[in-house]
């Protein structure tokens, strides 16, 4: 495997990691607020904050990791995306900043505040929407380069069925992933009322998730024929994705083995996300950046991969420790520690 391919695979794994952990976080923020306005907050908010408090910072790192790695492996990405994304990128930063800091203000600070809660919940849905714009742009047709100046075609973006279907998919996926995780976590905590509530959320959000996946697929066929054809060739990956979705739904519906159900949801998104990503190659930004022509120099690419492997030796045990302490420690989850 060439170092460019290893590079993009590593980055894609991290983006996938972010997709899962951030979805849990963003969705949880929304559910926490929703439960509050429907007066069910006493049922699940304790559960949500017990999970989120030790891990929110880790979630943020996944994201930083991805974009730093992207710029490192493919410096031209900084030029094109950086030039085009000033406005939407800045808005996403502001939303992330408000969300991250307000979380800390609310949870570690003194009094619970309704405004913090609302902003926390609302940004939880706006951030995935704004971040998904970067994925939309990568399909090409929204960024132009004239006389050495890169700019974003706002009107094209706002009127494209594809960009809207991606936004819709991002939001419903967040709610679906988050609710299936919370179902698992509530079962783990043996918290029956919370389990009943989040289980219903999971069943409810599964429907729009599948619909949005299909519409995005169709919209993509209209927008980028090449990418669509590549994805058709990788049909088995999407087949596996749907298969795992069905396993997850069956388990949740039956009300048993929620851990396995959540793993199935992770695999569902894993195959869909990697099928999408593989179909996208060799372009990172159609037609400006490909992984082969715009990668960093070999010496740096190899240094980054070595750093990455070294880093993993440090991170994986630490992450396992964190999970052992807060995710799989039954007493902690139940609120006894």
């Amino acid at each position: 495997m060439s170092y460019e391919l290893i590079g993009i695979t590593v980055l894609w794994i991290f983006l996938y990691g972010y997709l899962i952990v951030a979805s849990i976080d963003f969705g949880a923020g929304f559910f926490a607020y929703y439960a509050k306005i429907t007066k069910k907050d006493h049922i699940i908010n304790q559960l949500i904050s017990r999970y989120l408090s030790p891990v929110w910072e880790v979630t943020n790192v996944f994201f930083v990791f991805f974009f730093v790695g992207l710029v490192g492996f493919f410096p031209d990405a900084a030029y094109y995306y950086g030039s085009a994304l000033l406005v939407p990128g800045s808005i996403a930063i502001v939303l992330l900043a408000i969300r991250g800091s307000f979380y800390a203000f609310e949870n570690y600070g003194s009094k619970k505040s309704n405004i913090y809660m609302f902003l926390y919940g609302a940004t939880g849905l706006l951030i995935p929407a704004s971040l998904s714009i970067a994925l939309t742009l990568s399909e090409g047709g929204f960024i132009v380069e004239t006389n050495g100046e890169v700019s974003l075609l706002f009107n094209e973006l706002l009127t494209s069925p594809y960009s809207w279907s991606v936004v819709f998919l991002a939001i419903v996926s967040v709610l679906f992933i988050s609710s299936t995780f919370l179902t698992f976590y509530a079962a783990r905590a043996n918290d029956k009322p919370a389990l009943k509530l989040v289980k219903n959320y999971a069943l409810f959000w599964s429907v729009p998730t599948i619909i949005a996946s299909l519409t995005t697929f169709i919209a993509l066929s209209q927008h980028n024929e090449r990418h669509y054809q590549n994805m058709i060739d990788l049909w088995w990956m999407f087949g596996l994705s749907i298969g795992f979705f069905m396993i997850a739904m069956w388990l949740i519906f039956q009300g048993k083995r929620y851990g396995l159900a959540f793993i199935s949801v992770m695999l569902q998104f894993f195959f869909a996300f990697f099928g999408y990503g593989m179909g996208h190659l060799p372009y990172l930004l159609d037609p400006f950046i490909t992984i082969y022509e715009n990668a960093t120099h070999q010496s740096m690419g190899i240094a980054l991969i070595i750093a990455f492997i070294g880093g993993l030796f440090l991170l994986i045990p630490s992450l396992l420790l964190l999970m052992k302490m807060f995710l799989f420690d039954a007493d902690y989850v139940k609120g006894k520690k």
């Binding site: 943020n60 790192v61 994201f63 930083v64 990791f65 974009f67 730093v68 790695g69 710029v71 490192g72 492996f73 410096p75 031209d76 900084a78 030029y79 094109y80 995306y81 950086g82 030039s83 994304l85 000033l86 990128g89 800045s90 996403a92 930063i93 992330l96 900043a97 991250g100 890169v150 960093t296 120099h297 740096m300 240094a303 980054l304 750093a307 990455f308 880093g311």
Partner: peptide, 30 residues
């Protein structure tokens, strides 16, 4: 996080050149 992203958003030409050389410490920092 803001300054990390702003490096690329505000200084795209710089990051295009320097990104080649300094991505290792940036990566290690994360």
């Amino acid at each position: 996080t803001a300054i990390g992203l702003q490096l690329s958003l505000l200084w795209p030409n710089f990051m295009q050149v320097a990104g080649n050389v300094i991505s290792l410490p940036l990566f290690l920092e994360t």
